[in-house]
Write a protein that binds this DNA or RNA. Structure first.
Length: 196
DNA sequence: CACAGGATATACT
DNA sequence: GTATATCCTGTGA
């Protein structure tokens, strides 16, 4: 790599989740010497039935209501950690779920934690990505920087497709899953009906 | 390729 | 008790 990109500005997260989700595609995210380029992210809003924040604050989603740039890490299906970054404004309950990154550095450590042969499966999914980076609920509620997370500015503008989100049954019509069109590191391919 | 099932925390009925 | 912002493994077409 040609060095770490300068971090995104403080105002980067002070925007609606669907805007941040689109703009974070192509940014490099790093943690503990490992990381990669974000190729897939989903937006979750307060008035969004699919969002944990929809029915208000609970112990699990408390950090979703923190200031933009707060880390929200929750456990799903009792097994996997999922990494989110709070957006928009404090108290709004909006966040972006990081669903997949294209590994760019720290490959050996990530391979060791994941134990898979194919590098394309290292970080292709929200649970896989946190396992690869070694991210757990310890980071929940911390400001991005205090958590040791780094989000670098884009070095190039990727072509982004907006498609329906994955694994939800509410608000399935909202195209709030953002994916890098040309990426081979997505958790799931772009739906054929949208590939156009 | 398409399922089915298991692991099992958290929230809701 | 049931569903979920998931992943892995096994079975069968």
């Amino acid at each position: 790599m040609s060095g770490r990109a300068r971090a995104v500005g403080r105002a980067f997260f002070d925007r609606p989740p669907e805007v941040v989700a689109e703009d974070i595609i192509g940014c490099e995210i790093s943690y503990g010497g490992c990381g990669g380029i974000v190729v897939e992210a989903e937006a979750y809003g307060q008035r969004d039935p699919a969002s944990h924040s929809f029915r208000g604050e609970t112990p699990r989603c408390r950090s979703m209501f923190g200031p933009p740039g707060t880390v929200y890490v929750y456990m799903t299906y009792g097994i996997h950690w999922c990494l989110n970054l709070v957006t928009e404004a404090e108290g709004t309950g909006a966040a972006v779920l990081i669903r997949a990154i294209e590994p760019s550095h720290g490959l050996d450590a990530m391979r060791e934690r994941r134990g898979v042969a194919d590098d394309r499966l290292l970080c292709a999914g929200p649970g896989r990505l946190t396992q690869a980076l070694g991210i757990t609920g310890d980071l929940d509620g911390l400001p991005l920087g205090d958590a040791g997370l780094h989000v670098g500015r884009r070095r190039a503008t990727p072509e982004v497709a907006r498609v329906p989100r994955i694994g939800i049954s509410q608000a399935t019509d909202l195209p709030w899953r953002m994916v890098a069109r040309e990426s081979r590191f997505l958790s799931r391919p772009i739906p054929r009906s949208i590939a156009a």
